[in-house]
């Protein structure tokens, strides 16, 4: 028998869910509001901020005039796309071998990879910084791409491994019987079947790489600084400029928010891939 929900509890549940949703969305909404205020209005009490007159684009104009937004934007695009492509090149064969030719140690290897995510990044900051310095990678897009690829690689391999495990082994065996080489098996059979999973992995990695702040701030200065570093440049020793900081944040997160919004169906589909047969 289907579980029945009374109309009253349905209304209450909807209201509670709506309230929680609003709470989660509130910080973004507040940044949007602040970004359209003058610095003077942005430091007032919250209610005063909301109802004060004087909505302005001034902060956006100042940010645009002071910083080269497009340079930071292109750095973000190159770093997040580059790290994703590189990670896929490594992760697809790795996940394939662990999913379809597992050894006694596969589970341990997977756990070991995941354990690297349990270490606080700051724990390896000094050695990585020194390596970057010695290999002349500081403030380079190439260096940052490599670091972000390595940082997100365990999660990508885990996600792809989970998706690949859902593909029946018999289909790959059929491809082998049909004369497909390993490369052809991956290109013609495995990859097209895992497209929803790969797509959501790609999207998630782009989002993670786009929003990555710790490494981008610590390993870049001006040349390779992506949008996360661009935001922090408005949190200066002279004080916090809330309106400009908010405007910079909006400019930084807008592209990824728009991408996330349009690809949410794919993202959700990928993240729940295999949950229901």
């Amino acid at each position: 028998m289907a579980r029945s929900i009374s109309k009253k509890s349905k209304i209450i549940n909807t209201l509670v869910a709506g309230f929680i949703g609003f709470l989660m969305f509130f910080p973004i909404l507040w940044i949007v509001v602040l970004s359209f205020k003058t610095e003077e209005n942005a430091i007032r009490a919250p209610l005063e901020i909301l109802f004060s007159s004087g909505w302005t684009m001034e902060s956006f104009q100042t940010v645009q005039a002071r910083s080269d937004y497009l340079k930071h934007f292109s750095n973000s695009v190159i770093i997040s796309l580059g790290s994703t492509v590189l990670a896929l090149i490594v992760a697809v064969p790795a996940a394939w071998s662990m999913a379809f030719v597992p050894s006694r140690h596969t589970k341990n290897v997977l756990m070991w990879m995941l354990s690297t995510k349990m270490l606080p990044p700051v724990g390896v900051l000094v050695p990585i910084y020194l390596l970057f310095r010695d290999f002349d990678l500081l403030d380079t897009r190439f260096g940052l791409t490599i670091v972000l690829m390595l940082i997100n690689l365990p999660i990508i391999i885990w996600m792809l491994y989970t998706y690949f495990k859902e593909i029946p082994g018999e289909i790959l065996e059929a491809a082998r019987m049909d004369g497909a080489s390993l490369r052809e098996e991956i290109i013609y059979v495995l990859t097209p079947m895992a497209i929803p999973g790969i797509a959501s992995t790609v999207l998630l990695n782009i989002i993670l790489a786009w929003n990555e702040a710790f490494w981008t701030i610590n390993l870049t200065a001006a040349k390779a600084a992506p949008l996360t570093a661009f935001i922090t440049s408005y949190s200066s020793p002279e004080g916090l400029f809330y309106a400009k900081l908010s405007a910079a944040s909006i400019m930084a997160i807008a592209p990824i928010l728009i991408m996330g919004w349009f690809s949410q169906k794919q993202l959700v589909r990928g993240l729940t891939f295999g949950a229901v047969k």
């Binding site: 082998r176 019987m177 013609y188 079947m193």
Partner: peptide, 20 residues
């Protein structure tokens, strides 16, 4: 010899068709 070089063809229980 690898499966493809044995000139054998196999039909599986689950059909093993390529769904895409």
């Amino acid at each position: 010899l690898p499966p493809a070089k044995r000139s054998l063809a196999m039909v599986f229980q689950s059909y093993a068709l390529y769904p895409h």
